[in-house]
Design a protein around this nucleic acid. Structure first.
Ligand code: FES
Ligand code: FES
Lengths: 167, 167
DNA sequence: ATAATAAAAGACAATTAAATCCTTTATTAT
DNA sequence: ATAATAAAGGATTTAATTGTCTTTTATTAT
C-alpha cells in the first residue's frame, strides 16, 4: 500500500491551483545572486568557492556549482582551479549585465516570442496581450540592464540591499 | 541497455542552458486563451465544449478540460453539463480580469513575494532587484487589468488580435 | 613527485509541471 | 425510463526542472 507523494501533490495542485511560475527560474535566481555575491568579494580581492557562494546566497551547493559552470563558460565570471582558486570577477567581466545572466540560464523566452505561446510574436498578427507585453518587456529590459553587476554588488556591500535573509 | 530520454535532456539542458521560464505557465496560457475564446463565442450566444476550445486555441483537449475545471470552480466562466451544455460567460462573469485568471492557475507569485526568492519582499530589506521589480509589477498589473475579458474577445472577433496561428 | 584543493564533468535521483486516460455525475432529448 | 451528451473527478504517465553524488582534471604548495 504505497502511495507516491507526487500523486497527492499533483491532485492538490490541480485542485487548489498552486503552480509557481515566476519571472525567473530557480536556477536563474541562484545565478543572479551568485554573480552579485562574487562581485562583492572580488571588490575586496577575494576569490570564492562554490561552497561559500551557496552558503551566502542560501542555495544548494551542488546545484549552485552546476550553474557556476554555465556562468563561467559564458565568461560572465572567471574561475581558477586548485588551491587558492575559485570564482571571481574583474574588469574583463564588467560588460555583462543581469540580462546576460538571465539569458545564459533561462534563454531569451522572457524577452522574445509570444507570451501566450503563439508560434510567432508580431505586431502584424498580435495576440490579445501583445502590445501590453511589449510594455512589460521594456520595463524588464530596463530592470536587467540599468545597473552593472558591480554597482549591484556595491549596494549590497553598503548594506542597502541584500542577497539572503537577515539573521 | 535502456537510457531515459529525460537523462539526456537534463544533461543537455544544463550543458547548453536551455530552460524555459516565462511570464506564464503553460496552464495559464491555455487558461487565458480559453477564457477569451469562450467570451468570443458567448458574445454570439454559443456555449462551447472543451474539445472545441482546445482545437481553437491549439491546446491539448484533456489538459484544457482540467484547466476549465479550475476556471469554472473560480466562477470565472460558467458551465453546464449534458447535451447543449458547455462553457460560457455572461454579465455575471464580466467582473473578472486576466489577473484573476492568472491567480487562479498560477497563484500570485508573479505579483507578490521576492523575485529572487528571499523569504520576504520588503522596501526595508530589499533584494538588489526590488525597486525595479516593483516597476515591472506595476506594468504587469496594468497588462492584466486594463481590459475586460469581453473587450479582449471583441478585439479577437474584429480580427485585430488572434488566439492561434493563422492558417 | 606528491598530496591537497577546487572547479569541471558525468551520472543519476527527486520533485514539479504538463499531459492523458478512464470513470462518474448531471442533463436533455427521445 | 433510456440513450446520448458533456462536464467533473480520479488515477496515472511523461517530461522538465531541480537537486545530489561521484569521478576527473587542473593547479598549487610542500
Ligand atoms: S504576439 Fe503574443 S506577445 Fe506578441
Ligand atoms: S525583496 Fe526581492 S523583489 Fe522585493
Amino acid at each position: 500500500m504505497y502511495v507516491t507523494s507526487g500523486f497527492f501533490l499533483g491532485i492538490l495542485s490541480l485542485y487548489f491551483g498552486l503552480n509557481s511560475p515566476q519571472m525567473f527560474s530557480q536556477a536563474t535566481k541562484y545565478a543572479i545572486k551568485s554573480v552579485i555575491y562574487i562581485w562583492t568579494q572580488s571588490l575586496e580581492d577575494r576569490k570564492v568557492g562554490a561552497k561559500e557562494i551557496g552558503a551566502n546566497i542560501e542555495a544548494p551547493e551542488a546545484f549552485t556549482a552546476k550553474i557556476l559552470q554555465l556562468l563561467t563558460k559564458a565568461k560572465i565570471v572567471g574561475s581558477i582551479k586548485g588551491p587558492n582558486g575559485g570564482f571571481f570577477a574583474d574588469e574583463s567581466h564588467a560588460k555583462y549585465t543581469l540580462k546576460d545572466v538571465v539569458k545564459t540560464i533561462d534563454g531569451d523566452q522572457l524577452f522574445a516570442g509570444c507570451s501566450l505561446g503563439l508560434p510567432r510574436c508580431s505586431e502584424k498578427n498580435p495576440c490579445p496581450l501583445h502590445f501590453e507585453v511589449v510594455k512589460v518587456r521594456t520595463e524588464i529590459d530596463h530592470m536587467l540592464t540599468a545597473k552593472s553587476m558591480k554597482q549591484l554588488a556595491v549596494e549590497v556591500i553598503k548594506g542597502n540591499t541584500r542577497l539572503a535573509e537577515l539573521v
